[in-house]
């Protein structure tokens, strides 16, 4: 398979201060290791505080952008409080814009135990449950898309082999794989239940 490691090659292209110890590689590793496993909890939090479900993905993306922008200057010491404070602030500024008084959100952070100084068992729970979520993600894919993803990721066939085997063009294989990638990410990071980690 072709190597694709943009992080290691384009450090120079990343917006960061000269002499800063934070490299894009660090930021990316931190983001993947510390922030993404919080996604299910984050989505749950956003969902509880925002009615319109079609906005949730935009909120998530906004949170990630703000968190990344900050991390590219200095990586926050504790990811969890940082992510949720960012989320809360984004919610509040949005609510202000729409003239709603945001009292409950502030309380809610405490309920989730996010302000508390605890790294939480999130990551080991996350790892333990990963295979199940991956399988669930596969189950969520439409049949043809699933077939393409399985042949690509699990069987390791080339694009051409998959195209021949499925009787479609390589471009369509690429589209199926792209679609599968989105669903995989949403299930792997978004679906983790929070009920177990806040017991």
């Amino acid at each position: 398979m072709v190597e694709k490691t943009p992080d290691s090659k384009n450090d120079g292209g990343m917006p960061r201060r000269a002499g800063d110890a934070v490299t894009a590689t660090h930021v990316k590793a931190w983001f993947v290791r510390e922030v993404l496993p919080l996604e299910a909890m984050l989505m749950h939090f956003l969902q509880k505080n925002w009615r319109n479900k079609s906005d949730l993905e935009d909120f998530r993306q906004d949170v990630y952008e703000h968190v990344l922008a900050a991390a590219e200057v200095e990586i926050p010491e504790r990811a969890k409080p940082f992510v949720f404070t960012t989320a809360r602030n984004l919610l509040i500024s949005r609510l202000r814009k729409e003239n709603i008084v945001p009292i409950e959100i502030v309380a809610d952070l405490d309920v989730l135990g996010i302000a508390a100084d605890e790294p939480g068992p999130d990551r080991s729970l996350f790892a333990r449950d990963l295979l199940r979520r991956l399988q669930a993600a596969l189950d969520h894919l439409p049949p043809r898309c699933r077939e393409a993803v399985i042949l690509k990721r699990i069987e390791g066939l080339s694009q051409r082999e998959i195209a021949q085997r499925m009787g479609i063009s390589e471009k369509v294989v690429g589209n199926y794989v792209a679609e599968g990638m989105c669903v995989l990410a949403d299930m792997v990071y978004g679906e983790q239940t929070i009920s177990r980690s806040d017991a």
């Binding site: 694709k4 943009p6 894009a24 990316k28 983001f31 993947v32 993404l36 993306q61 990630y64 952008e65 990344l68 922008a69 590219e72 990963l130 295979l131 991956l134 399988q135 993600a137 596969l138 993803v149 990721r153 699990i154 390791g156 990638m181 989105c182 995989l184 990410a185 792997v188 990071y189």
Partner: peptide, 23 residues
């Protein structure tokens, strides 16, 4: 950062999906 956030997230999930090979 928008592009990086979205790309890194998908890439990380795709990397994790490698684990499916054990099955």
């Amino acid at each position: 950062t928008a592009h990086r956030a979205a790309y890194w997230r998908l890439e990380a999930a795709w990397d994790e999906a490698e684990r499916l090979r054990v099955l």
